[in-house]
Each structure stands twice: as C-alpha cells, then as structure tokens.
C-alpha cells in the first residue's frame, strides 16, 4: 500500500508498504530517516520516540497505515521544530515550510565517504546542545528518543522538578550513562 504523511514539515510518500510495517520501519527503511532507533520494537525502550501530531509515541507501535495523513517529527527535525517554536510559529502542522531537509535529501541522506564531519556548526536545538555539553551521550543509541521526549517535556513544562524529569523520561531506557548526565542535560536546557 501507499502511505502519505508529513515528516519534519515535508510531505512524504512511501510505496509498496507491507501492511504489517510500523511507522518506524517506514521512516528508517523507506524514507531515509534512520535517526529513530529500533532497540526493542515492543514499546519498552523509547528509542523510536517521535511526535505524531505533536504527541510523543513509540513509532514501532504505530502501524504505517495509521500514520496516513498525519504529521510526524523525528530527531532529524528536532532543531527545526525547536526553532519554529521559539519563533512562535507553532509546533504542529509545519507542512509546506521552506525549512527542513529537502525531500530529495531526506529520502536518502548520506554520510558521504571521504568527507570529514562532526557536525560542528550544525544548528542544534537547546536540548540537543545540552545533551552534548552535559555528557549525556555515550553510545548514542537511546539519544534520539530521549531528545524527542525531553524536548516535549520542556515544551509542556519549562521548569520541571527532578521528579518530573524522571517521570517524563521513564519510558526511555539508557544502558550507558546511568541517567545522571541526562538529568544534568535536561536541567541545563531548562535553565537556558
């Protein structure tokens, strides 16, 4: 079947989608957006967290067909999403915007061989910058889901208590950090 949806502000289409495929598979394997991660595929780790019409969900548990016509924000679109929010442009329905990854690039982003890149100079959202600076990233596999979730927390609650942070992030497993630096990162982003 064909699935049409908006991802990070851009209309996208995927063809020949098997009906049992998840939104996560479509994003990763058909739309060239592998930022959302596949760590458990049963909603127990949060690594695939995306915003679906603004609401954080596990993309592995959304059937691809259920995303038809809906608006998805992934970690790849988080910086744009945060910037638009900061500019007061609203946080939903960003379709048609001229920013974001162009469709052609989004479908198959490439880390070109030979190019050096650490992404220095890349525009980051405040939560992305804070994760980087606070040492909240080790292997980085849980990072995309945590970023989407933490960004949404700060959108709702700009000044969360520690217990609020823990409650909001309790659906995102991290095996490397012991979460302390993740707490630091969210506190840091909130303080800014």
């Amino acid at each position: 079947m064909r699935v049409s949806l908006t991802v990070n502000g851009r209309p996208q289409e995927a063809d020949d989608v098997w009906e049992g495929e998840s939104l996560l598979y479509v994003l990763r394997e058909r739309l060239g957006l592998p930022g959302s991660k596949n760590a458990c595929e049963q909603g127990e780790c949060g690594s695939c967290t995306v915003r679906l019409d603004g609401v954080p969900v596990c993309a592995c548990l959304v059937a691809a067909g259920q995303a038809e016509g809906r608006d998805v924000v992934t970690v790849e679109g988080l910086a744009d999403h945060a910037r638009q929010r900061a500019e007061g442009g609203g946080t939903r329905g960003t379709g048609g915007s001229e920013t974001g990854t162009p469709l052609r690039d989004a479908q198959r982003w490439k880390a070109e061989g030979g190019d050096s890149r650490t992404g220095e100079g890349t525009e980051l959202s405040p939560i992305q910058q804070a994760f980087l600076e606070a040492g909240a990233v080790q292997c980085g596999f849980c990072t995309p889901g945590l970023l989407v979730m933490a960004d949404e927390l700060l959108e709702r609650n700009p000044n969360p208590a520690d217990a609020d942070i823990r409650e909001a992030l309790c659906g995102n497993l991290c095996r490397c950090t012991g979460y302390e630096k993740i707490m630091d990162a969210v506190r840091l982003a909130a303080s800014r």
Binding site: G43, C170, G171
Partner: peptide
Amino acid sequence: VASPQIRNR
C-alpha cells in the same frame, strides 16, 4: 500503565 509514550496511544 507502561510509559508516557504508551499512555499517549
């Protein structure tokens, strides 16, 4: 129930 993500769905 499970996690915030699951409770949203």
